[in-house]
Simulated assay, not measured.
Amino acid sequence: MPTPIQITLLRASHVLEVRFEDGESFRLPAEYLRVNSPSAEVQGHGPGQKVLVDGKADVNIDEIVPVGNYAVLLKFSDGHQTGIYSWDVLYELGSNQPSNWAAYLAALDAAGKQRRS
């Protein structure tokens, strides 16, 4: 997977902008990153255990902490700070953002949940 050459937090718009060495660039909303956190709290501990996270429309990223040369830890305004976003995860989330977001919205609707708490 490509490596990011620039990671920029746009606090006012609640967006993490990630530019990769292959020329791809993604604008990833904090809410999208939060509800797709790679943490066990969200993903579970095995296949089919992903938790549907709702009420995060207003979440923001408070801090970006580098993790070696392969990832960042995102600290969110709701206190969540256990997901380590590897370059592969960020690239996958960016590449599949439209389908991931549509699936998330459909899952919220099916569960009777909302983006805002």
Rank of each mutant, 00 (worst) to 15 (best):
Y32D: 04
E41L: 10
L73Q: 15
I64V: 14
P47I: 08
S77A: 11
V59T: 14
G83E: 09
A103I: 03
Y85S: 04
S99V: 14
R27S: 15
Y104P: 00
I84D: 05
D22V: 00
R34Y: 00
V35M: 06
V15W: 00
G94H: 07
A71K: 01
R116Y: 06
R115M: 12
Q49A: 09
N100T: 09
P98K: 01
L9V: 11
I7T: 15
G44H: 03
W101N: 08
E24S: 10
A111Q: 04
L28G: 08
T82W: 06
G55R: 01
R115H: 03
F20Y: 13
F26C: 06
A71Q: 04
A106E: 15
L52Q: 12
Y32H: 13
A107P: 05
E24A: 14
T82E: 10
L9Q: 10
N60D: 14
S77I: 13
G44M: 07
V51I: 12
R11F: 10
V59H: 04
L73D: 09
V35P: 00
H80E: 12
V53C: 07
A12R: 15
E92T: 13
H45Y: 11
E21A: 09
T3R: 10
E92K: 07
R34K: 06
A103C: 04
Y70C: 05
S25P: 00
F26G: 04
R115T: 14
A102S: 09
L74Q: 08
Q43S: 10
Q114H: 09
F76G: 07
V65Y: 01
P98F: 09
L16R: 03
V67Q: 04
D62V: 11
Q114L: 11
A110C: 13
S86L: 07
G55D: 03
M1G: 12
V67F: 12
Q6A: 15
L10F: 15
Y104L: 02
V72W: 00
V35Q: 02
S13C: 08
L10K: 14
E92W: 10
E63W: 09
V67R: 12
R11L: 11
S77P: 13
L93W: 04
